[in-house]
Design a protein around this nucleic acid. Structure first.
Lengths: 225, 225
DNA sequence: TAGGTTTTTTAATATTATATTTACTTTTAC
DNA sequence: GTAAAAGTAAATATAATATTAAAAAACCTA
């Protein structure tokens, strides 16, 4: 799991503790604040991915805190969700006006909260959409999902072939020296015979297309679009 | 209207009758119990959508009953609301600790009660609306109820298998690395042997279909539709 | 809480996909 | 034309996964 930080703001220490515990044990970084003013400071400092904000707090209430946080440039993508007692319907409306993305009602059911948090973060991720994806020509190489698309067709490659293709395609046109390929795909310590790379290249040529891999004799290989 | 069941618990027959009458005439199924112990039994048996629970009762008081009911796995989504005499403020606090969602004060005004019940059920519906249901191909995965439909056939999976399937199916086509699977299904701290995942995959293949789970050697597994 | 049941994990073995080598043939640059 | 470099197919090795059965945990239920 990546490093996800959640800012949890409530004036009741009990809630901070119990919710914090539940979120921590799911692997999230949890930062807490006990009032709106501190929450704004903490948000600036920690740049959390998600903020859970109690509506009713001393110093500065959640709605005002939310408005302030929404103005922080770095936190445009942060998700803000309110904690509101059941029945305080006004706060939902006001909260959405202030820029909240969601709200969670008290009393808090930890499991529900955790699943809601997960859902929200999933949304965040979907919005960001920034994954390890390389597109070169017809090829789409998705390192996260270990998937390769050749046009519309999905190709499954064994690991070494995947790594090799991935390396070559990371810089189309560049000639990778055999030595460099060995270092990057096999690792510096591993010693393999002289024909190993060739065999893998051959398999890639079979699967991706003969014309995509050009041999530069005496040097290495390059990927061409 | 769907089939909504309300469990009404009070030791005074008069209240059962009058409130029961009002709720019935709104079209709800009403089940009653006269003490906490019976309430827990009735809850298990009827799986009501809403429970209205008197705080002061012989045998087992409402708060204890509430705690017990909250432990019943099938009733995680049930709304529990207390009936409390005005002034018994402590019960609100204790009640929320026990897992109650709301409270209604005595003396009861039937119309008020009915409208409150409607409001609570509306909320229930809203919560259900964002249920954790994933559909992929023929599979319907209901995370809330731990149920899986394969077409029309219901499949019950043990927890680990369920979690594993749930993870893989959350992103069909994506290859989940073994390490990620371990982190997400088993948790970062847990250490299990190297063949544990395989065994679970095998069981899923038996139950869901061999062709649905593809091995990507050296990397992990993926779910295909 | 003892006893039975289910679920989860382990461990030992078999199987398989992948990686590498081998033994050759072909290409290419000079 | 030739020697070095690369290509190829098949043989072999290796690492990863599949399969079982059985042990260990967890979970129920009376």
């Amino acid at each position: 799991m990546q490093d996800i930080t959640i800012l949890l703001v409530d004036d009741e220490p009990d809630i901070l503790e119990i919710v914090g515990y539940n979120l921590s044990s799911e692997g999230y970084n949890v930062v807490t604040a006990e009032n709106g003013a501190d929450a704004v400071k903490a948000a600036k400092k920690h740049k959390p991915n998600l903020i859970i904000l109690d509506v009713m707090m001393p110093e500065m209430d959640g709605i005002e805190a939310c408005e302030q946080i929404r103005k922080i440039p770095d936190l445009q993508n942060t998700i803000i969700t309110f904690l509101t007692a059941r029945g305080e319907d006004y706060s939902q409306v006001a909260g959405f006006d202030a820029g909240a993305d969601d709200y969670i009602t008290k009393p808090i059911k930890p499991k529900l909260l955790v699943s809601k948090v997960k859902a929200l973060l999933r949304r965040l991720k979907a919005e960001e959409g920034e994954e390890n994806i390389t597109k070169v020509g017809d090829l789409t190489i998705n390192r996260d999902e270990y998937k390769i698309l050749n046009g519309e067709i999905e190709i499954i490659l064994p690991r070494k072939e995947f790594e090799l293709l991935s390396l070559l395609a990371s810089n189309p046109g560049k000639v990778f020296k055999r030595e460099d390929i060995l270092n990057k795909v096999w690792g510096n310590e591993v010693v393999v015979g002289g024909r190993t790379i060739d065999v893998h290249i051959r398999k890639l040529r079979e699967k991706i297309g003969d014309n995509k891999f050009k041999t530069v004799k005496g040097v290495g290989y390059k990927f061409v679009i």
